[in-house]
Measured scan of single mutants.
Amino acid sequence: RERTTFTRAQLDVLEALFAKTRYPDIFMREEVALKINLPESRVQVWFKNRRAKCRQ
Rank of each mutant, 00 (worst) to 15 (best):
R1Q: 10
R1E: 08
R1K: 15
R1S: 08
E2P: 06
E2K: 08
E2I: 05
E2W: 01
R3M: 10
R3L: 12
R3I: 07
R3Y: 11
R3D: 12
T4L: 11
T4A: 06
T4Y: 14
T4Q: 12
T5M: 08
T5Q: 13
T5Y: 07
T5L: 07
T5K: 06
T5R: 08
F6T: 06
F6S: 02
T7H: 04
T7E: 07
T7L: 02
T7S: 10
T7C: 08
T7K: 07
T7V: 04
R8I: 03
R8G: 08
R8D: 07
R8S: 12
A9Y: 10
A9P: 09
A9T: 15
A9R: 11
A9I: 04
A9D: 08
A9Q: 15
A9S: 13
Q10G: 01
Q10C: 03
L11N: 10
L11F: 04
L11H: 08
L11W: 05
L11K: 09
L11V: 10
D12F: 03
D12V: 12
D12P: 04
V13F: 04
V13K: 07
V13P: 05
V13I: 07
V13E: 10
V13Y: 04
V13A: 12
L14I: 01
L14N: 02
E15M: 03
E15N: 06
E15S: 00
E15H: 03
E15Q: 07
A16Q: 09
A16E: 09
A16W: 04
L17E: 05
L17Y: 13
F18V: 02
F18L: 03
F18Q: 02
F18I: 00
F18A: 02
A19G: 07
A19Q: 10
K20C: 07
K20Q: 15
K20L: 04
K20P: 01
K20M: 08
T21H: 08
T21R: 05
T21W: 02
T21M: 03
T21P: 03
T21K: 07
T21D: 08
T21I: 07
T21E: 10
R22F: 04
R22Q: 14
R22S: 13
R22H: 14
P24D: 03
P24G: 01
P24E: 00
P24W: 00
P24K: 01
D25E: 02
D25P: 03
D25R: 04
D25L: 05
D25N: 07
D25T: 11
I26S: 12
I26V: 10
I26A: 10
I26T: 15
F27A: 15
F27V: 13
F27R: 15
F27W: 10
F27Q: 15
F27K: 15
F27Y: 14
F27S: 14
F27L: 13
F27I: 15
M28S: 12
M28W: 01
M28L: 13
M28Q: 14
R29P: 00
R29N: 03
R29Q: 11
E30F: 06
E30N: 13
E30P: 00
E30A: 10
E30W: 05
E30S: 10
E31K: 11
E31Y: 06
E31A: 11
V32N: 03
V32W: 00
V32Q: 09
V32M: 04
V32S: 01
V32D: 00
V32A: 14
V32F: 04
A33Y: 04
A33C: 05
A33R: 02
A33H: 02
L34Q: 15
L34R: 15
K35N: 10
K35Q: 13
K35G: 08
K35A: 09
K35F: 03
K35S: 09
K35E: 04
I36S: 05
I36L: 15
I36Y: 07
I36A: 13
I36H: 06
I36K: 02
I36Q: 03
N37C: 11
N37W: 01
L38Q: 10
L38D: 01
L38R: 06
L38K: 08
L38E: 15
L38C: 15
P39F: 01
P39T: 11
P39S: 11
E40F: 04
E40V: 09
E40P: 06
E40R: 03
E40W: 03
E40H: 06
E40D: 07
S41G: 09
S41T: 10
S41E: 14
S41M: 05
R42E: 15
R42Q: 15
R42H: 14
R42Y: 13
R42M: 14
R42T: 14
R42F: 09
V43Y: 00
V43D: 01
V43H: 02
V43G: 02
V43A: 01
V43C: 02
Q44Y: 07
Q44R: 08
Q44P: 01
V45D: 11
V45R: 08
V45T: 13
V45N: 15
V45H: 14
W46P: 03
W46I: 00
W46Y: 04
W46G: 00
W46A: 00
W46V: 01
F47R: 01
F47A: 01
F47S: 01
F47T: 00
F47W: 04
K48N: 10
K48R: 10
K48I: 11
N49C: 07
N49Q: 14
N49A: 14
N49S: 11
R50T: 07
R50P: 00
R50K: 11
R50Y: 02
R50H: 06
R51L: 05
R51Y: 02
R51H: 00
R51G: 02
A52I: 08
A52L: 09
A52V: 07
K53D: 15
K53W: 08
K53N: 11
K53Q: 14
K53V: 10
K53A: 10
K53T: 12
C54W: 06
C54P: 08
C54G: 10
C54R: 06
C54V: 12
C54H: 10
R55M: 11
R55P: 11
R55K: 14
R55A: 12
R55Q: 10
Q56D: 12
